[in-house]
Amino acid sequence: MPSVSSLLRLSVVVAGAALALSFPMLAPNPYILSAGVVVASYAVLSTSWNFVGGFTGYISLGHGAYVGLGAYGTGLLIIKAGLPSFAALLLSAALVAALAVPIGIASLRVRGASFVIVSISLVLILLLIFQSWASFTGGSNGLVVPRPFPGLRRPDHHLVFFYLFCALLAVALLSWWVIDRSRFGMGLKAIREDEDKAQSLGTPTFAFKLLAFVASATFTALGGGLYALWFGDLDPVFQFSILTGAYMVLMALLGGVRHLFGPLLGALVVGSALEYFKVEYGSTQLHLVATGLLLAAVVLFMPDGVIPALSDVYNRLFRPRATSIREATAAELRSQEEVRG
């Protein structure tokens, strides 16, 4: 029989999923619905980022590179190769996965701040390439991506893509969950804690990091490609933007990188705030200031994100006798008893 806490967790997940899926029905107008699509796409991106950032602790500020590559790959495969939209999306993600192998081999050799710098440099290089190679990419004039469902009216178009992003998010979350509870995931988390120590215990750290990196890049590219199909217009300045990567980091950190739903929660907060700022102060750069302040606040006051901060508050209010030593949950105690038999 499942324990109370796991039942509670399951019901929160089910309620959250139901709320998300009914969002298009609740949205008062197509604009809110389109904002929902943007937030869902952010949730996909930050969850994808967390495959490498959360597990291994390698902070990539340059994940915008894979968003852009996935988006342009999808667009170009449709336009230049005449592929059907979703075949182009999948092939584009596969190409990004293949490309992530050499990029990962090169960049995962350095740790900490050096890795951050390397990850940023990749976005900047790609931005220059996609801007300058205008004959192929459309350059700064942009690239118009044909819509996959030309007959669909605009609100229905948003509706379909909201569910597509939700489906992709579900796959990404499920994959993260599977890795989180696996032996592979244990190795990745050990890398985050002490990479050399993990290697001395027999963990093939480099191969592990590379696998997580490729998985992360692939999901990010799928998110970018789906965005291209939805938005239909690509510009290198927005596709290969440092900001995209920075948003992914901020969302994941805000929610909590050690938690399955941390990046998703962060995307809900930051994504909604960004959309709000664009509506209210669209002509200013105020949303950048707000983003910077939020990032500083998170790092200063909630380094582990909202989820642990909230559960700390919960523990203080409702479990006053909690000790400094982490208490075992009922499920853990039971499984111990089972083992001892």
């Binding site: 599977v178 890795i179 509870r181 696996s182 032996r183 592979f184 995931g185 244990m186 190795g187 988390k189 050990a190 804690e193 002490d194 050399d196 120590k197 993990a198 215990l201 027999g202 963990t203 982490r326 499984s335």
Partner: peptide
């Protein structure tokens, strides 16, 4: 050197060695 922010039990489970992908994706606990 230990893994400071992992539980004692998880510290132990890091040292489990497997080679096949299937075994790597098996539940660590």
């Amino acid at each position: 050197r230990i893994f400071p922010r992992m539980t004692v039990l998880d510290n132990m489970l890091v040292a489990v060695r497997t080679t096949s992908l299937r075994a790597q994706l098996a539940n660590s606990h």
